[in-house]
């Protein structure tokens, strides 16, 4: 099963390689990864998506926690949370398909952020499943390039 794991870390040189080294050294897989600063400038948040049986996920969280620079490890699947990914998609946009592309982008609340003579760059955010749906729809029109971010996630506010 897929798990999104959120890791708060000290923002120090080499910390990222401690995390990725742990994954490669112990044969855990990383499907996506994203890191950036948090509100506290010396703390980063790393979100990674991995998959494995429960025992593997348990080892992953324990081993992450064991790294000296790690402050907190949260398996997002144990919480009600929101997850987002971003994709930039360069799609063919010629005279007869431009309107079609725009309509699709609109339906999925994306944006065209660059307009070329024969292509658009479309910006999309959403869950991985939504991005995949848009990609599948745009593919017949002609996708030239895709860049996707890793997943980021946040727990929802507790109800009441």
């Amino acid at each position: 099963m897929k798990h999104t794991i959120s890791v708060l870390l000290q923002n120090k040189p080499g910390v990222l390689s401690r995390v990725t080294g742990l994954f490669s050294g112990r044969g855990f897989n990383i499907e996506s990864l994203s890191v950036a600063q948090t509100l506290e400038p010396d703390v980063s948040c790393l979100t990674l998506v991995t998959s494995g049986e429960d025992t593997i996920i348990e080892q992953i969280t324990k081993q992450l926690h064991k790294l000296i620079d790690v402050i907190k490890v949260t398996d997002m699947c144990e919480h009600d949370n929101v997850e987002r990914e971003m994709a930039l998609i360069r799609v063919k946009a010629e005279a007869h398909t431009r309107a079609e592309v725009l309509r699709i982008v609109d339906i999925f609340r994306g944006k065209v952020i660059d307009v070329g003579p024969k292509s658009y760059v479309v910006e999309l955010t959403g869950k991985a499943s939504k991005l995949q749906a848009v990609i599948d729809i745009l593919r017949p029109i002609g996708i030239q390039e895709i860049v996707r971010s890793g997943t980021i996630a946040m727990t929802r506010a507790p109800k009441s």
């Binding site: 040189p13 080499g14 390689s17 401690r18 080294g21 742990l22 050294g25 000296i68």
Partner: peptide, 13 residues
């Protein structure tokens, strides 16, 4: 520091 990362409890430069 890079070489010994997986074989130390922690390391520092």
């Amino acid at each position: 520091v890079g070489i010994t990362r997986p074989i130390t409890k922690h390391n520092y430069l």
